[in-house]
Design a protein around this nucleic acid. Structure first.
Lengths: 194, 194
DNA sequence: GTGAAAAAGTGCAACGAGTCAACTTTTTGT
DNA sequence: ACAAAAAGTTGACTCGTTGCACTTTTTCAC
């Protein structure tokens, strides 16, 4: 009947997935990450734990359902930056923006949940750092050097790490500025060709 | 009878701990980290799993028994560096040394085990990054600024991260040099006072 | 259309890591 | 020497996660 993209099956699958993610987020916010078991979430969505794991790779993944446009945004921040602006400055501004939206009313509770739960914090960090290769390639393309240039990878790695550096600081914004001041000056002096 | 430091009890405790660590490392090298269960290790040392967890905080900790002079070595690398050598250069040399000893025949198998097991790699990274505060304080003391100076924390964070940056690179030594070239130039231009 | 085969969804039971409350042994104060 | 306290040890349990078997849906040959 509808072989294209939307079949009845796909719809039910998406609905189940959404029900699981919604139940998980609600329960986590209510009782804390460790106060909620996989069984609780599965029962709230009226499926078995096995079915839950068919939809999500693990307990942490239940929280990070709608992500992964972040990688594209990161590349865009470099590629589409205003003329005359340096790559580190563009990345710094992008991260400052990112912090700002994380503190908006709607996201504040979510952000706090992630920041205060070690398992979620670590998972978010690991996922975030996986963008390094793509970001390094974008920086290399911008500078006109081969995409495996070590200096580009170093800048990408450090720029992404600046996020967790700022999270641990008393004054995150000041920490971000200090970190990118270091990277900016280093990048200007060193350049992609080492 | 022997109330000072060495009691019969302490000796037995240390012996049990050592037997566990030895059995764990031997089995991990033989069958791989995931091929060995906590039960296997406990049985090899002839204790119960609960006793094992009284001695070690988790499965990963069984591998990292003899560590934690590393933090002191890191601080010493900054404090006792040759006159005229910059802080980033001293840290770079220290990390290059560290890599060298990790490749010595006796440690090569151990290093490979850690690098190829995600759980161990992550645990080692987390432990390593905990030295950030101490290293930042050493750098700040050296530069004569308050120990919570953001630029010092940024340098410490990035210098420590250079290790995992290098591990993921095709040419780790080249990656380390590129990373520290960035940090060296940035540090010279920016300095601790931002 | 119809029936079989393949694919996807689902659940029960099991495994491994880590914790808890109770029991045993060693140490300590008198 | 003896009781109280401290430390060591244990089996039973919880929770996250996976493998195997079963059911339902979709696909395809006839």
């Amino acid at each position: 009947m509808s072989s294209p993209p939307v079949g009845r099956r796909e719809r039910k699958k998406a609905a189940t997935r959404q029900a699981l993610a919604d139940a998980a987020l609600r329960l986590f916010l209510e009782r804390g990450y460790d106060g909620v078991s996989i069984k609780d979430i599965a029962e709230a969505a009226d499926v078995s734990t096995t079915t839950l794991f068919k939809h999500f790779s693990g307990k942490e993944a239940l929280v990070f359902d709608r992500e992964s446009e972040q990688e594209a945004a990161l590349v865009a921040a470099v590629r589409d930056r205003p003329p005359g602006r340096s790559v580190p400055a563009a990345l710094r501004d992008h991260l400052l923006d990112r912090r700002r939206v994380a503190e908006e009313p709607g996201f504040a509770a979510f952000s706090k949940l992630v920041d205060t739960t070690p398992a979620l914090r670590d998972h978010a960090d690991r996922t975030w750092m996986r963008y390094r290769t793509t970001l390094a390639a974008a920086i290399a393309a911008d500078a006109g050097v081969p995409e495996d240039d070590p200096a580009c990878h170093a800048l990408a790695h450090f720029a992404l790490q600046a996020l967790s550096l700022a999270r641990d600081a008393e004054d995150p914004v000041r920490a971000l500025h200090a970190a990118f001041s270091l990277l900016e000056n280093g990048w200007n002096a060193t350049g992609p060709a080492t």
